[in-house]
Design a protein around this nucleic acid. Structure first.
Lengths: 183, 183
DNA sequence: CAGTGAAGCGGAGGGAGCCTCCGTTTCACG
DNA sequence: CGTGAAACGGAGGCTCCCTCCGCTTCACTG
């Protein structure tokens, strides 16, 4: 890739990050181009679709996911506390940008979404936590990872759309934890 | 209201119903106007915002909610079966139109949404079911109606966005039921 | 260092949808 | 009827999307 192209690409990602943070993932792409000081044509050459741009800006989050798993699993207390800590991390990771939770979780099921690899990272992280719980014998039988991911995605989407604070999200996570753990 | 105005209003609701059913709640309003054979100005006079039109077309669903509660509560089996039957009805009521689940549930929390009264009907219906469970002593302590509504709204939103079939939704409702009922 | 071809750029512009404004038409009532 | 208020409708301005293509810039070569 030519040097100027690389420069523009990086600048676009940087600006897109800021614009999406301010105005949500549905912010006008023309504004991203404008604020990056390039024409719309340049933006669309680097990122043919909005989703391609989403994918690019999410790449940096993805790297942090495993750190969040470890952080949650290091929580003081029993399995339930660890699980809830992880659920809170999960929701918080999904709601970094307005509109992200719904988009990421929606692409969980379909194989051909550009976000597929990204959301797979979330799903894998959740699975590792569930496996840990299962090994300790505290997980109910028949609890499926995909279902839990979707439930958490649903909670994150609701939190996103209603601008809920953590204290309003917690009781929902409690219900899911109760539903997933034995007794 | 003048007779021609009344006629147009009713026709707009009828057409909007069909268009939203075909193309989701985000379908172009200009098309609603066009298919109703009126100018956009007429549509916007009757329904100043998209939400006002949503509210109008939902009025008919709302009347059916209590019937669905009764239907679910008449299910054979114990409390768990009744509750799950109701959860399925709830999700199905919310996913009649693409995009409806997220919009309705989002307006649960905010007082000033035009959809407020509509979603209150759903919340009230759910509360009546939870109260029934509580009276029978099978409900966990501290389970809040709003939280359950949001959880179900989240599930409905995921089902909507990923076009899930009832068999894929059921396991998520199982988790919520486990989380809400004792033992 | 100049020449050159390919890679990359940018912005004009057509399309879709939103919504308003205002000249025209229609209704209902005296 | 005649009239004034109510309602209509569509032209058009705005925003955003995305493409196309003439122009510029880069990197490589002799």
């Amino acid at each position: 890739m030519r040097a100027d192209a690389k420069r523009n690409r990086e600048r676009l990602i940087e600006v897109a990050h800021a614009v999406f943070k301010e105005r949500g993932l549905d912010a006008p792409l023309d504004e991203v181009a404008r604020r990056a000081g390039v024409g719309p044509g340049t933006l669309y050459r680097h990122f043919p679709t909005r989703e391609a741009l989403h994918e690019a800006i999410m790449a940096t989050w993805i790297e942090e996911v495993s750190a969040h798993v470890e952080k949650a699993m290091a929580t003081e207390g029993g399995c339930r506390e660890k699980l809830l800590a992880w659920f809170e991390e999960y929701v918080s990771l999904l709601t970094r940008h307005q509109g992200a939770a719904a988009k990421i979780t929606a692409s969980l099921g379909c194989q051909d979404s550009p976000l597929r690899t990204k959301c797979q990272t979330y799903a894998d992280a959740n699975e590792s936590v569930l496996t840990e719980m299962s090994d300790q014998g505290v997980l109910r039988e028949g609890v499926d990872n995909l279902d839990v991911c979707r439930l958490l995605g649903g909670v994150a989407t609701m939190a996103d759309q209603s601008s809920l604070e953590p204290k309003d999200v917690r009781p929902m996570l409690d219900v899911i934890a109760n539903g997933v753990l034995k007794s």
